[in-house]
Computed example of a mutant assay.
Amino acid sequence: MKPLIIGIAGGTGSGKTTLVDRLLEQFGDDISVLPHDNYYAAHHDLSLEQRQTLNYDHPASFDTDRMIQDLQALRAGKTIHCPVYDYAIHDRTEETRELKPNKVILVEGILIFENKTLRDLMDIKLFVDTDADVRILRRIVRDVKERGRSLDSVVEQYLATVKPMHEQFVEPSKRYADLIVPEGGKNSVALMMIIQRIAYHIEHGDVVAEQ
């Protein structure tokens, strides 16, 4: 069965992960997740202080070419070894994570629609749209509680790079979406539509329903 590849994009703190989690709860082992964040470029030659000053919200901060190769391999039915990124040290680790081909592959990240070659691999493109004030509050809570960042560093990074990069790259990429989902996984109507589409693919494979 050819996998159904679904891209889930949106700004930081928009609710992408919540949507992914809802789909995993529904379909479990039939879904594999490929996060763009895992493909941040390695910076082993830089000190922690130097890595902390980098712009992680620009497309150039990702090794998207490797992600494209891995996604092509998954689509061809091959197992890949996905990089692992450590937010605490702002760098890629030496570890990899084995990811096997599956019926459905979710590609998740803020900038996955910015690269044409990457987005052309996706069968369905979803953009999770949430107000900026809600997104920054969620990012602060996440980065302080889960990633060990200080409040000052989160706010400084948001103003210096996250906000301007969102306006320059993320928001414009919304025009490539097949479906814009306000509030992500909390949008029960959109969630049900997505679930029904995935369920149809899992049951019928490559057969497309009559319009």
Rank of each mutant, 00 (worst) to 15 (best):
F27M: 04
T93I: 03
R75A: 12
H36W: 06
D123E: 10
K103E: 12
D30A: 12
R97Y: 08
A76Y: 09
Q69D: 13
A132P: 00
L19K: 01
T64F: 08
E108R: 07
H81P: 06
L48S: 08
R138E: 01
D123T: 06
A132E: 04
P35F: 01
G109C: 08
P83K: 01
R51I: 00
D29W: 11
D45R: 09
I89A: 05
I110V: 13
E25N: 13
M67G: 10
D29K: 14
F113Y: 14
P35T: 03
K16V: 04
Y40A: 02
D30R: 10
M122W: 11
R97D: 08
F113E: 06
D37A: 11
K78C: 04
E146V: 02
C82V: 09
Q69G: 09
L126F: 11
V107I: 03
R142T: 09
A132W: 02
F127L: 06
L137Y: 12
F127H: 07
N55R: 08
M122H: 10
E94D: 15
L99K: 01
Q72C: 13
C82S: 15
F113N: 02
H44R: 14
F127N: 05
D65K: 14
L121A: 00
L24K: 14
D129P: 10
R142V: 07
D29E: 14
I140G: 04
V107D: 00
G77N: 03
G28D: 03
D133T: 08
E114V: 12
V144P: 01
I140S: 03
D123M: 09
N38M: 02
L106N: 02
R22K: 15
V134E: 13
R66M: 05
H36M: 15
P35E: 05
V134R: 02
D65I: 10
T117N: 10
T64I: 11
A88Y: 10
L126R: 11
F127W: 11
A42W: 07
T93S: 12
H90F: 02
D91G: 10
Q72A: 10
R92Q: 14
N115F: 09
G28H: 06
V141G: 02
I68C: 00
Y87H: 15
Q52D: 12
S47T: 14
D57R: 01
I105E: 01
A88S: 12
T96H: 06
Y39A: 03
F27Y: 00
E108M: 01
D129A: 09
V104E: 02
I80H: 05
R75N: 08
R119T: 06
K145I: 08
M122R: 09
D143N: 04
E95A: 14
D143V: 01
E95W: 02
L99C: 03
D133L: 13
Y56F: 15
I31M: 06
T96E: 07
A88H: 13
L54H: 11
V128F: 10
D30P: 03
Q72W: 07
V107Y: 00
